[in-house]
Each structure stands twice: as C-alpha cells, then as structure tokens.
C-alpha cells in the first residue's frame, strides 16, 4: 500500500427537507485499500455513495479525487475518471444479454460513443474485455443469457462485472451481498477479496462477517456522520461503536 490518498471527503452535508442524511462527514480512502462503511439502517450510507458517484450533489463540503476537486462534477465525468459503482438495487439493462450489458460498460470506458457505422456486436474491442470481466466474476457461462433470465445472485455478479469492465480506480460497492443466500454471499465475498489490490474499494455492506473479513479499514456511519475510522479490530473493540450500532453494549 502506497498510503497515497485516492479519495478525500471533507465536511460533507446533504439534507432532504429537514433531514440531514449526510451531516459533516469526513472520510478518506488510501489507494489500493478496501474501506468498509458500516452503520445502522438510515445512517446515510447509500446517500454517501451517491454523492461520491455524482448522482447526488452535496449541499456543503468537498470531495477530492486524487487531490482534484470533483464535488460538482456530473456522474458521467466521474465515471470517465474511473469511478464505478454497483447499485444496492440491481440496475441493469433488462432486455440485453449479460454480455451486452458488460459491453455497454466497456463502451462507456472507451470515450464517446458517437460511432455510427461499425457494428458493436462484432467489435472485439468491446467483446474481449467484456468476456474477461464476466470471467472474473464467474459469469462467463451465462454471457448470452438475457438479464431477465438471470437469478438475483447472478445479477449482482453482473453488476460487479460491469463496474470492473470500466477498469475503475475507485469502485463503490453498495451492499454487493444484499439479498443473497449464504452460498452466493460467500462466493461474492471471495470475489471481492480477489479484487483487493487491483482497485480501491469503498464497500458498504450489512453482512458484518464479510466486512470484517474484507476491509483494511472500517468507518462507522451513524446519523450521517463518521463516528469512528480504524482497523477492523479497533472498530470491533470500540465502546462507542458498540453502543451506537453493534448493540452489544453492556
């Protein structure tokens, strides 16, 4: 690990009406690490990720990507800078095959798509990397299956394949194990573990076991604010965290 900060978030605030979903949030991500974000329901985890990705713009504060201010940058331009996200609720193109979905993501990573002549489906510059990404997540055997025919776990894998196909420098994983059975969840955990070192990851996850196994560091989000950042064992031992979240306070 280089200890270089890929991402820095300072004093982030986002309100919806009277509710401060993000409330003076500070956060940083070291290049190459998996940084877990945990917190009770309604702590503002997804709101936080949406602001990192650009779908939501914060009211106050700043987001620095590689030292550059991207606070107001629209989502598609952040994507060009290597920010990829998998959604908590699966977001795919339903009538496309798995391969076509990943090809779309590859296409997004290759600059503009104002190309009107060459057939996309025979373009090896799209299909090649798409197959690689599908193989990485273990879904290559379903390449030609339409999304509507895929199981929930497979859709989650496909989400991840699409994010990987963009060759992200910063991967935002919003509950990748959500709604998965034990077996699929374990497979996904292994998969994320294999990604360690290849890219930097912000991992939001409810499955404590998975987060504590995967994360290099963990931040605890409560009421829109990070109350603790540290190594997994530090977070596990922290009284305040236990009281606020883990519920094992004595």
């Amino acid at each position: 690990m280089t200890d270089r900060r890929l991402l820095e978030v300072k004093g982030l605030v986002k309100s919806f009406g009277g509710l401060k979903a993000t409330n003076d949030l500070n956060f940083d991500l070291i290049e190459g690490e998996i940084h877990g974000v945990i917190g009770p329901n309604g702590a503002g985890k997804t709101t936080f990720v949406s602001q990192l990705q650009g779908q939501l713009l914060p009211d106050l504060g700043e987001i620095l990507l590689d030292g550059e201010d991207v606070t107001r940058l629209p989502a598609h331009l952040r994507a060009r800078r290597g920010v990829a996200r998998s959604f908590q609720i699966t977001s795919l193109v339903p009538s496309f095959t798995a391969l076509a979905n990943v090809m779309l993501a590859v296409q997004g990573g290759q600059g503009h798509s104002f190309r009107f002549w060459k057939r996309a489906w025979t373009d090896d510059a799209l299909a090649g990397p798409a197959h690689v990404a599908l193989a990485t997540v273990g879904l290559d055997h379903k390449a030609n299956a339409v999304v509507a025919d895929l199981g929930h776990g497979e859709c989650r894998q496909l989400e991840l394949a699409m994010a990987l196909a963009m060759k992200p420098r910063l991967l935002l994983l919003d509950e990748p194990m959500a709604g998965m059975g034990r077996k699929d969840g374990a497979a996904m955990t292994d998969l994320v573990a294999r990604l360690k070192g290849r890219t930097s990851i912000v991992l939001i996850e409810h499955d404590m076991e998975a987060v504590f196994r995967l994360a290099d560091r963990i931040s605890v989000l409560v009421a829109g604010r990070v109350i603790k950042t540290g190594l997994p064992e530090e977070v596990r031992a922290d009284e305040e965290v236990r009281a606020a979240y883990l519920g094992h306070s004595h």
Partner: peptide, 19 residues
C-alpha cells in the same frame, strides 16, 4: 446500443460514463 440502453435504464448508461 447507447440509445436502446438509455431507453431502458438511463441511470445505468449515465454511470457507465455516457450522458
């Protein structure tokens, strides 16, 4: 491909880096 994908899931196309 972009046209068809955006018709079905605009958000997905946007986060892919294509407005």
């Amino acid at each position: 491909v972009v046209l068809r994908a955006a018709a079905e899931n605009e958000r997905r196309v946007t986060v892919t880096g294509i407005p």
